[in-house]
Write a protein that binds this DNA or RNA. Structure first.
Lengths: 331, 331
DNA sequence: AATATTTCCGCAAACCTTTGCATATCAAAT
DNA sequence: ATTTGATATGCAAAGGTTTGCGGAAATATT
């Protein structure tokens, strides 16, 4: 195992001082052009890499960011992560991606790891709604900036970035009601999450506002299996819905299986609309019309919030990421 | 911004030396029980976290691992990453996840970032097949262990972990030919990748071995769109296939859309089998039978290889991750 | 020719931790 | 009373970097 090149190393080889080498490499005006050249050449030759640990120790400015989500294998968060990773790398920072598995205890250990790495900031999608905010306040006090993503807390005083849930639900209702429908079956996620409540409220209100004659059936599913089962029951029932709204990919994936095995035609027998990042809806034929909540856009926004703070902007900002309708053949 | 607690900090507060504090916290036998207690209590109170950068500088043993894949948003790699992240965190290490975007140049900058962080090891799924191995040899010389995953180089002398491609293709052929089929349409990925060639060779050989009467049509698709188009053509052609083999999720996703819009029934009119991590095949009704190439299993294996090396095992090992048939309703 | 100014470079401290070695205290053994 | 041994603690160096300050040499100014 070869010894790593160091400043000391280079300086003694060149017969100059360590500080001169350091300054030469960082293009300090005090150093002459000729010296800079010599130093740079040798550094190149020896494959010199500054020791980031020593740098941190001296400067106290870490170049690592943390990111905590419940699971990397999630086709919304993966695009959020993908965006943030690219941006982070672009500015020469390192990103620590951690999975909380939706468990507050694991979430804590993820945070500990961020602290251990002296992360300058943490992006986090909260695991559960009733999380204790005290640790996060402490983190901020200690100089670790927090940006909450997607599932954001109600507390003021933090940077937050979330999809515009209300708008998404309204757009979905609008699109669905462009054509007349007798009965809409609207399938939502876990009632515990505020995201569910927001979307349900907005969707319901918009439907009754636009078309008070339309019957609205509502269901809640915690997972794909349950979504499938409830959809099956609805389709078999007396008042078979002729329109289906799914508030998330997970829900959509379950519901559409029920539709497929029912033999009903999309959109002739039943219209479908979802809220999605865009991957799942394109897997089927016809493709499903959806309101796009772009993970990529959310990631970019979150990163921007982080940068703003790291560059000195101090007042916390709450951002809503815009959504848009993507039309396909399911309406 | 509060000042971080340090050993010096604690030591002066307690009126004892830094070394004593350090040893007390690491449970060194030289330190008396009473001192240990006092130190631990204060450390707890002050929220002391050892400064990992200082630790590294002193011990020269970094606790970070790097991982490079083309894209995090990939429903095979995401499960690989998920597994490795959890294992890495379990041993108190930090994982740096980086995306090469299938670009050798970006791949190099990812590697630079790993070097900058003094990663003890790097997991990597190569971006292109004809990659120059020299940088990786150099990395090993400098003490950074490399574990190649999935798309592994031919070179000897490296740790490698890959799916058992040949076996996967053979199992798929076996399962497909349990029932008689007139014409099989087998759709593969980019011919450039050795993974494609391996799977094609194995599949073709097995088909002709088991059932020389069966007609085998072969196609190559670089993406989903192309897979869909080729499948559509095949289904519209004179000799419509009654069986379909898709070598990957991407291919399957495209092909199945063509099948769905053709109106053909699965499996009555056409049987389908794929090779997959398991997510995509369960989205449809009936669910698609597939040979499981588990990203999770691959991740676990890769991590194990890394650990073996970090614990002193030096000779490089090449591991093939086993695959298995998951039966559903598409055959 | 003396002084002022610029240009270039080195000294040394500090960041926080780990660890080999020395030291101090006290009890037990001679 | 002296030595031995064990127990508990401290000293100081090292790891690689950045940076304020001081200083020597070269150049410019009077």
């Amino acid at each position: 195992m070869k010894a790593k090149a160091t400043l000391k190393n280079i300086s003694s080889l060149l017969g100059i001082s360590i500080s001169t080498v350091s300054r030469a490499l960082s293009d300090h005006p005090d150093i002459s052009a000729t010296t800079k050249l010599k130093v740079r050449e040798l550094a190149e030759m020896l494959d010199y890499e500054p020791n980031s640990y020593a740098v941190y120790l001296r400067t106290n400015a870490s170049k690592v960011l943390g990111l905590i989500v419940e699971d990397i294998s999630n086709n919304f968060y993966d695009s959020v992560i993908s965006a943030i990773e690219k941006e982070t790398r672009k500015i020469g920072y390192s990103l620590l991606i951690l999975q909380s598995s939706n468990d507050p205890e694991i979430e804590q250990s993820c945070i500990r790891l961020c602290k251990y790495n002296r992360a300058a900031g943490i992006f986090i999608a909260l695991s559960s709604s009733g999380t204790d905010m005290a640790p996060f306040r402490k983190l901020e006090e200690n100089g670790t900036h927090i940006v909450f993503m997607d599932k954001v807390p109600d507390d003021e005083g933090f940077d937050k970035v979330a999809m515009n849930d209300v708008r998404a639900a309204v757009i979905a209702a609008d699109a669905l009601l462009e054509k007349k429908h007798e009965t809409i079956f609207a399938l939502f996620g876990d009632k515990e999450f505020s995201i569910t409540r927001n979307r349900e409220k907005a969707f319901t209100e918009q439907v009754s506002k636009l078309s008070s004659g339309t019957k609205l059936l509502t269901g809640y599913a915690k997972d794909r299996i349950s979504a499938r089962e409830q959809t099956r029951l609805a389709l078999d029932s007396q008042e078979r819905p002729d329109a289906l709204f799914c508030m998330s990919d997970e829900i959509l994936a379950g519901a559409i299986k029920a539709v497929q095995s029912s033999g009903l035609r999309i959109p002739e027998d039943i219209a479908i609309i979802g809220i999605s990042n865009g991957y799942i809806p394109t897997l089927f034929s016809p493709e499903i019309t959806y309101v796009e909540t772009s993970g990529h856009a959310l990631g970019i926004q979150a990163f921007e919030s982080m940068m703003n703070h790291l560059n000195g902007l101090t007042n916390p900002i709450s951002v809503e990421v815009p959504v848009r309708l993507v039309r396909a053949g399911s309406l």
